[in-house]
Design a protein around this nucleic acid. Structure first.
Length: 254
DNA sequence: AATCGGCCCAACCGCAGAAAT
DNA sequence: TATTTCTGCGGTTGGGCCGAT
């Protein structure tokens, strides 16, 4: 694809917070003419904004069906459940929550739910006698990796990158073997989790679950992934705790 | 009353895929 | 089929707000 100029590079266009006047112009225009072409809209409406900015303003703030205010407990539970299944696919999650935007859900996740879940995990971890020796930071570190690998798994475009880098593509996860360890790799962020995934049995446990012949493929994947991440979490926390000096956990893989 | 630091959220940016040419 | 344009998505940022000191 050729080099494309960002829409807001156009000189003379306003950026930053919208004024009530701009809001009014945008609402009036869309009510009258709709928004068939975002690119052309600001010019036709007489707004000194790029189309992208107009679209965002409308979708996230001005649409008449936007539900404002605090998230209910039901909405919260729905987000947690959907995020567990879908990962950071905020737009998909938003389709299940009428009146809520992907941006709003994303913000809510980052500011409230993520912390809440981490806290729950720590509480759970503290009450688990079997893993009492593990420190909480070591648990949270692989959690970050879980998120990143999950992102890689949900992006089809990354698959190409992975193939180009000669990384094997198996089911929905990417992995590659070095002579000494199995490495998970996030092609988008160009980082690997070699520190966290230096154990073959973790890798095999994941593969075993994936090779299960159960008829409900999604359930198998879900169960396999769940089990896999649990083992990974414990294993990597052990590794991190044991290490006298922890090297940069997310070193470039080259 | 002033300052500081963390939180929150609207808006921006870059990227990728779809659609159009 | 190749290239360009448009749209939508997810990550990130920055500024306002608010409580703590």
């Amino acid at each position: 694809m050729g080099s494309r100029r960002a829409c807001c590079e156009n000189m003379g266009l306003r950026k930053g917070p919208w004024t009530p006047e701009e809001d009014h112009i945008l609402i009036s225009y869309i009510q009258q003419f709709g928004h068939a072409n975002w690119r052309a809209l600001p010019k036709q409406a007489g707004l000194l904004r790029c189309g992208k900015s107009c679209r965002l303003r409308w979708i996230n703030y001005l649409r008449p069906d936007i539900k404002r205010g605090n998230f209910s407990k039901e909405e919260e539970d729905t987000i947690i459940k959907l995020h567990h299944n879908l990962g950071n696919r905020w737009s998909s999650i938003a389709t299940q929550l009428p009146g809520r935007t992907d941006n709003e859900i994303k913000n809510f996740w980052h500011t409230h739910l993520k912390k809440k879940i981490k806290k729950k995990l720590i509480m759970k971890q503290s009450s688990n006698s079997e893993t009492d020796h593990l420190d909480h930071e070591a648990i949270l570190q692989p959690m970050t990796m879980m998120m990143m690998v999950n992102n890689a798994r949900t992006s089809s475009s990354n698959a190409t990158t992975v193939v180009n880098n000669n990384v094997h593509h198996q089911q929905h996860h990417y992995y590659k073997h070095s002579t000494t360890r199995t490495v998970f790799f996030d092609p988008k962020l160009q980082i690997s989790s070699s520190l966290l995934l230096n154990s073959d049995d973790v890798h095999h446990s994941f593969m075993d679950h994936n090779n299960n012949n159960n008829t409900d493929e999604d359930d198998v994947m879900e169960e396999g992934i769940h089990n896999f991440w649990y083992k990974l979490l414990v294993k990597s926390a052990e590794t991190a705790t044991a290490a006298a000096s922890v090297p940069p956990a997310l070193a470039n893989f080259g």
